[in-house]
Write a protein that binds this DNA or RNA. Structure first.
Length: 312
DNA sequence: AAGATCGTCAACCGCCATTAA
DNA sequence: ATTAATGGCGGTTGACGATCT
């Protein structure tokens, strides 16, 4: 028998012996005990020595994503969701890099979250999730609303103590605004604080780099153009219409430096032109109680963030 | 009550970079 | 310098439970 045939037969036998699919309790136990004794690494060797009929890769993945003691389970906290949105704006689909900023969370989990929660919204809006337009929607609407949710939660106060990327001045500003009786205006200030204080060049704020501004402008206008050609035609997607209008508003307030001017992000007080543009329904949206609406235990879904624009 | 559809998430796959032989 | 092994990453799949019709 030629050696190549023999090798091929052996590899087939090995492949036949390998298990796939969900891990059993017994396999988990073998892996945990082996790593407890000998540590991680050399996964192929580990799989053999531990008596696991799995590939090294499979063992590594099972350990890192599920069995490792410091892996966090359960829903993502608002802070974690905020970080994911923020960092994805900055780094794109660099899941492992993003995961490094969320202790206990795996790249797989973050990727799943992005696909199930974030991309879903992009699909509903009929926007490419990797497009500049969608990034801007996240920056201009999603993150601020997330901040607003956090503003009203007990969680928000705890953020100060854990080296949050939110500046300390944020809460201060919001308090000042509360005193001044500016409801939604606090959001814009929050964004501005983020903008001024963030160390990174590209942060979650609506400000964009000069090089990006043209593309953003065009993409936002294209969203608006679609709205214009079919202002009420996106059946069952009034939220889309609202977003398109807001996008138009943002797109038309880009200042000469490529950033958005103050009024742009102050969604609480749109210009007269935009007010004309908005329907009564839209104005009602702004009056909803975001903070206290359906917010329990600091855990909520992305869908809630889009409410009352949710897509049903 | 039952089948269809949807959402979630663990697991797999293929590719690439790094390292050791 | 080359090659094989290994680890890491991002994309994709499929099982399964939840929800809808």
């Amino acid at each position: 028998m030629p050696s190549s045939t023999k090798t091929s037969t052996n590899s087939c036998e090995v492949a036949d012996q390998l298990r796939r699919g969900p891990w059993t309790l017994e396999e988990d136990s073998l892996l945990i005990h082996y790593i407890a004794r000998h540590g991680e690494g050399h996964w192929n060797l580990l799989a053999k020595r531990a008596g696991l009929r799995r590939t090294g890769k499979s063992c590594r993945l099972r350990w890192l994503n599920y069995l490792k003691p410091d892996v966090k389970r359960g829903n993502l906290t608002p802070h974690e969701q905020f970080l994911i949105l923020e960092l994805h704006c900055k780094w794109g689909n660099r899941w492992s890099k993003i995961a490094q900023e969320l202790p206990g969370r795996t790249d797989n989990e973050i990727k799943n979250y992005w696909r199930t929660s974030v991309q879903k919204q992009a699909r509903h809006l009929k926007i490419d999730a990797n497009s500049a337009a969608f990034r801007d929607l996240i920056r201009c609407f999603w993150i601020p609303r997330l901040l607003q949710k956090m503003e009203g939660s007990a969680f928000f106060s705890s953020m100060k103590s854990e080296n949050s990327i939110l500046p300390q001045s944020l809460e201060q500003t919001m308090k000042q605004q509360q005193v001044a009786g500016q409801g939604r205006g606090s959001l814009s200030e929050a964004i501005q604080c983020l903008e001024q204080n963030s160390d990174s060049e590209q942060c979650a704020s609506p400000r964009v780099s000069s090089s990006e501004s043209m593309n953003n402008n065009i993409s936002q206008i294209s969203v608006f153009a679609e709205y214009q050609t079919n202002p009420f035609g996106v059946t069952g997607h009034n939220d889309y219409n609202t977003l398109a209008k807001d996008c138009y508003y943002v797109a038309n307030n880009v200042d000469s430096s490529g950033g958005y001017d103050k009024e742009t992000i102050n969604l609480a007080s749109p210009s007269a032109a935009v007010k004309d543009f908005m329907t009564d329904g839209d104005c009602q949206l702004a009056g909803n109680d975001w903070v206290n609406d359906g917010f329990a235990d600091g855990i909520w879904s992305m869908g809630e963030l889009w409410e009352p624009w949710s897509f049903h």
